[in-house]
């Protein structure tokens, strides 16, 4: 049982974490060279025009006023309108539209990593020093070492260009058009923005298959690193657990090898692995930036990179804070999960 005090303490700690991230992002953006007003009006604009835009955007106010205004707006999750990249669209709307794309990609990558990484790690530990173990270890090492910008184009070349099994880019086939809403019991509800979920909600099976085909390669590319790391972690964690006295006792009492490993070993070996899964989610969000670029997926990652280049303060601040919030919430979930697996952690 997870204690309320433990959860409340973890929730309260989100406040200084987000406050710290907000201050860091604000500081870095204002220390970086470049004037957003000049980016908006163009390099040939007169000084008067630049000054007018600066005044309209509130950039001529003293920096401490801008800081307090930014923090006040961030509390209600209002980051204002994008200066340049999303052409005046409120950042909140941009996030609602683009974030599900990136989250979907990161989630599928994570799911693939967990589905293959954990069983491979267990197999490798149980069959230590066998051919299976050696192959898994070499595979994991390769998975950790191969960068996304190399594995992405290579997989496209093999599966899309040469074999023609999977599409090269995009999120869904051009023949499919998804509406903005779906109907449940006569009520119109907005779609999630995640194509695989939306196509299922709309009951469009062909579109779902197309979405899965489009997502497969990007998810594999982003999931390879996760899978490799998780299998390495799972192997070392499981190797430590299988040598414990309680495992030997369970075997001595006549319990089968498979049941001993899965019932007694897995739960204890999972604790450090679950911690890594939480931390990995942040890496996957970061990795999504490269993957989105390679596979032409219009997520928040590519937009963030463009926004940094254009010194689009509201968009960068809003996106980074949302990433931080997501990351801390995922890690809160991880904390709760492993405190459930091992209640001593709550002490």
């Amino acid at each position: 049982m997870v204690s309320k005090r433990f959860v409340v303490k973890r929730l309260l700690l989100l406040v200084p974490v987000l406050f710290g991230v907000a201050s860091l992002v604000f500081a870095i953006l204002h220390l970086a060279p470049g004037d957003p007003a000049k980016v908006i009006v163009g390099q040939r604009a007169s000084t008067a025009q630049v000054q007018q835009v600066r005044t309209e955007l509130g950039l001529n106010d003293p920096i401490w006023i801008q800081y307090v205004r930014f923090l006040g707006d961030a509390v209600v999750f209002d980051f204002g309108n994008s200066y340049q990249i999303a052409r005046g669209t409120p950042v909140r709307e941009v996030l609602v539209e683009r974030l599900p794309v990136t989250i979907e990609l990161a989630l599928y990558g994570q799911v693939l990593g967990i589905l293959f990484g954990i069983p491979l790690g267990i197999l490798s530990a149980v069959k230590q020093d066998s051919i299976t173990d050696h192959l898994t270890r070499v595979g994991a090492l390769a998975g950790i070492s191969v960068p996304i910008f190399w594995s992405g184009p290579l997989l496209i070349l093999l599966f899309a260009t040469s074999l023609g099994w999977l599409p090269t880019s995009g999120r869904i086939g051009t023949a499919f058009f998804l509406p903005d809403t779906w109907t449940l019991l006569g009520t119109e509800l907005p779609l999630t923005g995640m194509v695989t979920v939306d196509t299922l909600l709309l009951g469009n099976w062909e579109a779902f298959v197309s979405a899965v085909q489009h997502l497969f390669l990007p998810a594999v590319v982003i999931g390879i690193y996760s899978m490799a790391l998780l299998s390495r972690m799972m192997r070392s964690s499981m190797l430590e657990v299988v040598r414990q006295d309680y495992m030997r006792t369970a075997r001595a009492k006549g319990q089968g090898a498979k049941i001993t490993v899965l019932k007694h070993g897995l739960r204890n070996a999972l604790i450090p692995v679950i911690t890594v899964i939480g931390i990995q989610f942040g890496t996957l969000l970061g990795g999504a930036v490269l993957t989105e670029t390679i596979f032409g997926i219009g997520g928040i990652g590519t937009m963030l990179v463009a926004a940094i280049g254009a010194t689009d303060y509201p968009l960068v601040q809003g996106t980074v804070l949302t990433f931080a919030l997501l990351f801390t919430l995922v890690n809160l979930g991880v904390d709760i999960t492993y405190s459930y697996l091992d209640p001593r952690i709550q002490q």
Binding site: P16, V17, F19, G20, V21, A22, S23, L24, V25, F26, A27, I28, H30, L31, I63, W64, Y67
Partner: peptide, 13 residues
């Protein structure tokens, strides 16, 4: 101010 905010953000985090 931004340098101060950088140190403050780093410390808080």
């Amino acid at each position: 101010f931004a340098l101060g905010a950088l140190v403050f953000g780093f410390g808080t985090l």
